[in-house]
Design a protein around this nucleic acid. Structure first.
Lengths: 147, 147
DNA sequence: TGGGGCACTATGGGCGTCAATGGGACTAGA
DNA sequence: TCTAGTCCCATTGACGCCCATAGTGCCCCA
């Protein structure tokens, strides 16, 4: 199964490292990659993470867009300046840099959440809160539709 | 991975020098260059920087254009008069000249921002402001499209 | 079927290397 | 002679690479 599924929380050690769940790691590593591409989400305090091909996928979308539109400039700036590579060490850990902390509020623990084609990095409480909000919205929507 | 990605801020020392991030330096140096070509961005208080081949790349684009068109003249003038070379010292640093300071407002710190095929040099606050603006524009656009 | 051992993950830590930064000395031009 | 630009070296803190250990699930075999 090469989809990112489920969520789990790991602790950051004294040197600022955290293990990427083996389940997620395997998907990336089996594609021959030793680094991850991470992008600060636009509307959530989380990062979207995947193998380097995630960036390639975004780039391709950019190329097909109108290169004169201001949006294309914005998009390129966002993808390349607000995203970065995370190196996996020999034990499958990444170091949690300020690049991650500032956007997510992460301090001592990290929640990894599957999102099918990629996964997300969250501060655990933020993740819980978001999960609760999503559930509430879906329940509300269902209630409206069936009444 | 030989693309310019992510952003980081370095301090200018008492002699007006600043380290180019190793990550970016490696890309240029592995192509055998010890100089950088920098061009003042048209729309932004930043400079577009890359190896000398960046100028070549722009030149090529020019050659394919109509040499009698006024815009080609303008373009050529712009590339050569508003651009310059930055020498990398043995430790991978550049000296921050007035050429850089005037256009960017840089004083004590420099932010380097990846832009895929090249990178940019910013005054840190300006960079943050631009980053926030870009994110806001993209988020707004997304909001309109999905509603 | 129950127990022992194997495999593997998450986590901790040692240590050498390298990047970022600071500063001295030498050179050349004004 | 003074100033600006080079070249070189020192320091320190971060990071990569390596190995160790504890906890856990799984498999295999008696």
């Amino acid at each position: 199964m090469n989809r990112f599924l489920g969520h789990m929380t790991n602790r950051i050690d004294a040197k600022g490292r955290v293990s990427v769940p083996a389940q997620f790691r395997l998907i990336v590593q089996s594609a021959g990659h030793t680094e991850l591409y991470a992008l600060r989400s636009l509307h959530l305090p989380a990062l979207d993470v995947g193998g380097p091909e995630l960036l390639t996928r975004f780039d391709k979308k950019l190329e097909s867009a109108d290169p004169f539109a201001e949006t294309a400039d914005d998009m390129s700036f966002y993808l390349h300046a607000d995203g970065g590579f995370l190196k996996l060490d020999a034990d499958g850990r990444i170091t949690v840099t300020d690049f991650l902390r500032e956007h997510t509020g992460i301090s001592t623990d990290v929640t990894f959440a599957g999102a099918n084609t990629h996964f997300q990095i969250w501060q655990p409480d933020q993740f819980e809160a978001h999960r609760a909000r999503v559930r509430a919205r879906l329940a509300e929507k269902r209630r409206l539709e069936t009444s």
